[in-house]
């Protein structure tokens, strides 16, 4: 109950500080592996930003932007996971990556496992730097109990 009140208060008395400080920004990446002991090499961005959005897709996104909003939510979970390592945030990212893999590959998951990691991008001087903040254990690509 106390936790719920803690979550509710920022909505009833919002701070309204949008983008005041541009903090290091998370990217979620995953790698497919055959063996759960593998570290993995070919990491790929789980939700790559599209190169370009055609005007018709932009118009549709005004009404239906579920995929992008989920991508932003995964970034939020990544930030929360680094600030306060809770299983919920790990689970949220894991399940959404798994759902994406299922959409892409169907039920025929090869390789059988995946890991995900969180990269934080920031500016250092005039250059962008990428820091690995978290690497997950290996998870099954198909797990009916965790979908």
């Amino acid at each position: 109950m106390l936790n719920l009140i803690k979550l509710l208060l920022p909505a009833l008395f919002p701070s309204w500080r949008f983008f005041d400080v541009i903090a290091p920004s998370p990217r979620v990446e995953h790698v497919l592996i055959d063996d759960p002991k593998d570290e993995g090499e070919n990491w790929q961005e789980s939700r790559p930003t599209p190169q370009y959005i055609v005007p018709l897709d932009c118009f549709k996104a005004f009404f239906w932007n579920a995929g992008w909003n989920e991508t932003l939510y995964m970034s939020t979970c990544a930030e929360r996971l680094v600030q306060n390592p809770m299983e919920l945030n790990r689970r949220e990212i894991r399940r959404r990556i798994r759902a994406g893999l299922l959409r892409k590959n169907g039920d025929h998951a090869t390789p059988r496992y995946f890991r995900f990691r969180l990269i934080f991008v920031s500016r250092q001087g005039g250059m962008l730097r990428r820091d690995i903040a978290f690497v997950s254990p290996a998870y099954l690509c198909i797990d009916p109990l965790d979908q």
């Binding site: 983008f19 541009i22 920004s25 998370p26 990217r27 930003t49 599209p50 190169q51 370009y52 959005i53 996104a61 992008w68 991508t71 932003l72 970034s75 991008v121 920031s122 500016r123 962008l128």
Partner: peptide
Amino acid sequence: EDVFAFSAYPASEV
């Protein structure tokens, strides 16, 4: 500049 350069928000690479 930072929002566009490295935040997760820009909707496309363009």
